[in-house]
Amino acid sequence: MTDTALEAAALGKRFGRLRRSAGWALRDCSFALPAGRVCAVVGPNGAGKSTLLALAAGLTAPTEGSLTVLGGPAGQARARVGFVAQDKPLYPQLTVAETLRMGGDLNPGRWDARAAERIAAGGDLDPKARIRALSGGQRTRVALALALGKRPELLLLDEPMADLDPLARHELMGVLMSQAAQHGTTIVMSSHVVAELEDSCDHLLLIGGGRVRLAGDIDALLETHARVSAAADTDLAPHTVVESRTTGRQLSALIRPAAPLPADWRTGTPSLEELVLSYLRNPEAKAAGAPAKSPEESVA
């Protein structure tokens, strides 16, 4: 087992070759995700989240740069990686029980039938029901049972909770966290809803416009940023300004302090959602990484 579950270096992926410059789903992405973390991949629709997860799963190859998965090239560690794609692909003509048996047959030596059945049973699924007759949420449950039954070292989940009702969402998130606690599984899950992931994840990868905007331990990212308010004519230098707004005589800003802050500023720690929104609203703000550095950061 390696210390780094995922490591991207100048990773880029372009779809289609006809137009110049257009078509890059991801560009210049560099980050490192330590093993054993639960990482939220957050970004607006079309930011490149699904492309990144498909690259990590080894289902598509990078156009440039590299992505190391569990110590080797993406795709080589496929037996130790679980991936649930956004559309939860399953065989519609199989029953739930047959699908789980297939999971056992396809993952010899790794399959944990009891864990898989327990997850499927949590939703009162009839084992004899065919996949095509299931609701979206039930299909998600079967797909997660299949992925977790494999006992992966790295679990990649693309929008896993989108189809689930709040009760199932809470229960399955609990199952995922218990998996991480018990086996040290590294989990990477994407969502465009930050609040959905805030309590469950300890690492953040914020993607916007195909680039890494923020990467690192969530607590560390929150600690290295501050929300401040001060008089409107205040000069924010030398701090890095992510976002600032002036209302009347009041200046409110989200900054990355470069030095201790003056005592007459009112300061507070941002919430994860505030941090993410500030970066997304301000595409020109410098990317921040802690501890993994993005290329912009190392140049800065």
Binding site: S178, A180, A181, Q182, D199, S200, D202
Partner: peptide, 17 residues
């Protein structure tokens, strides 16, 4: 309660516990 028991019930991150 063990970290596993807490996170299974609350869906929070194990490292938080």
């Amino acid at each position: 309660p063990t970290a596993r028991e807490v996170v299974e019930a609350t869906a929070i991150n194990p490292n938080t516990v």
